[in-house]
Nucleic acid binder design. Structure first.
Lengths: 328, 328
DNA sequence: CTGAAAGCGCTTACAG
DNA sequence: CTGAAAGCGCTTACAG
């Protein structure tokens, strides 16, 4: 068997330097099993000195740890819609995995049709799955023995920890700002109905608006800027006196602003507009919004599946903070 | 050795069904080596019937094929700047690799300091590297024996095939459109000077403008919308009578438009603005630009490193087409 | 053309 | 607490 002499350091290099067998080195590195304090320390030192990172390919052959973390994106159709949000999630995941020599894959989880999760979980090359935008129905397929290897960015379940932004609080903050600054006829442009996380924002909007003694006005969008424009047209037709728009996300808010400006309706003096997410472009556009730390969320989710704890980790929720700019 | 019984099909399943040894199955699957036509056919059929995909983890232990494709992003500083473009590249790569059970990693290639490429190429878990935004200097580190395992989105070299959009033709088309529609004082906002691909656009601008008997007017930007705004301010100060702006990319063009509008300079009647890339938001913004098929480029580059041909593949260049919208 | 064997880098029962 | 051995799923010389 001939292969290019790899300069990569293996566990036998570590074992040799520590003066132990590779069995002992393996146990010491795993941090569990009976290992004498002396051996433990020498192995740890040798590993650091040699910058040893275990070969996940070899490991995947013997354990349930894999070589790949797959990001499963729930999509209405069979094709995967890649948007900027997803790009940020997968970039963050791939950066974090790289030093561990783990790769990331991307797969669509169609809303209807067979759930790809079970096959993924029985594939010895997959370390775990990070679900994005998932639904209760898809979460049903998660069996107790997948625990620790599946985490969800969005809603969770008994077996699946959730990592997410506090949509509700962020949306509430943004709507509350509108109310405080005197807006009374506040329209919300929502996202697609199948998305659980979008429902939390709608709920927050409803609560704040009702608490202020105002009426709710809701128009459906789909997260795109174009849908923001269309929804704004519809809203203006239905409620010509509206004085504020809260959009489910920044892209939709930018669409709303474009539509308003094209009708010479001044923002924010005539109509205030707020978004959600604080996308990179929002600062430039002067959009008032609430933060959504996408990278930190993706990193936390990735870290959880890299660790693959036997027990279900706790849910993690990142706060969403109001960012005041010019649009409201 | 206990592990959860994997439901995954292995090469021995294929061999058994085809009635041959796993050695023969392996050879047949590889498509090379002496295999009888009969065996070849039975193995091929068995593989299809069982939906067999070789386990890259096992394969990586014995060959120079890895379990992971790494996207190497050349960055001015040590930290990796993730923008929407990179998100699209890595999403496309990760989608394409997933069915092969290969993951993707993401690593910064700092402009200064040690080049991470040699270490990556000797890591048995890496299948190959897709370089993004690379420079001549970084390409120097590519040795002949990396051939076929490194491809560059951007400039190439003797050993490294390049996959890219035809920046020059796209930029030329966009500037030519400006000239044809009567613009005479055309300013270009460029990108950072260290980026070779940005130089091609500047060259195209220069050629077209000079051929029309006009003078070149160049201001430096950095690909961001904010730099487009700032560069536009500078340009207006220097050439108050400018009648067109060609931006190195759409984000910068959007910045230029915002700055012009904030000064009540009408677009396109007073000043025409064109971008480059045709980003998703460009359609919404009514920006005249030229196409940049990022996903197709990323897929071609990914496919090349997945195949890892022994010989350097040919360069691939995708055409860039003018997209006429409202801004020019 | 074909199969048995060795070996890649790990982990994990199994005996000491 | 420790090491020798087996085995994960492949590929590739090596003998037939």
């Amino acid at each position: 068997v001939a292969r290019a002499a790899s300069t990569t350091v293996t566990i036998v290099d570590v074992a040799r330097r520590a003066g132990v067998s590779k069995s002992t080195a393996s146990r010491a590195l795993a941090g569990e099993g009976r290992v004498s304090p002396g051996a433990l320390e020498r192995v740890a030192r040798a590993a650091v000195e040699l910058s040893f990172v275990p070969n996940p390919a070899a490991r995947a052959l013997v354990t349930t740890r894999g070589t790949r973390l797959v990001v499963g994106v729930v999509s209405p159709g069979p094709t995967l819609a890649v948007d900027a949000y997803l790009g940020r999630v997968i970039s963050a995941a791939a950066s974090l995995c790289e030093p561990e020599r783990i790769g990331v894959g991307l797969q669509a989880f169609p809303l209807t049709g067979p759930n790809p999760l079970p096959a993924l979980m029985s594939d010895p090359t997959v370390q775990g799955v990070v679900l994005v935008n998932t639904t209760e129905a898809l979460l049903q397929a998660v069996q107790p023995d997948f625990a620790g290897r599946v985490v969800s960015i969005g809603i969770g379940s008994v077996f699946v920890p959730s990592v997410d932004v506090d949509n509700g609080a962020g949306s509430a903050a943004v709507v509350r700002h509108l109310v405080k600054s005197g807006r009374r006829r506040i329209v919300m442009i929502t996202g697609p109905h199948w998305l659980p996380c979008a429902r939390r924002s709608v709920r927050a909007y409803t609560d704040v608006v009702r608490a202020a003694g105002l009426t709710t006005r809701i128009v459906r969008g789909d997260f795109t800027a174009e849908s923001g424009r269309i929804a704004t047209m519809a809203a203006l037709r239905r409620w010509p006196d509206l004085d504020a728009v809260v959009a489910i996300c920044d892209a939709t808010a930018l669409g709303a602003i474009a539509e308003l400006r094209s009708r010479s309706i001044a923002v924010p003096s005539d109509v205030a507009v707020v978004g959600f997410d604080d996308i990179p472009f929002a600062e430039f556009a002067g959009l008032t919004t609430a933060t959504h730390p996408v990278e930190r969320i993706a990193e936390a989710a990735t870290r959880a599946v890299l660790e693959s704890r036997p027990r279900r980790p706790d849910d993690i929720v990142f706060s969403s903070d109001l960012v005041l700019r010019q649009s409201a």
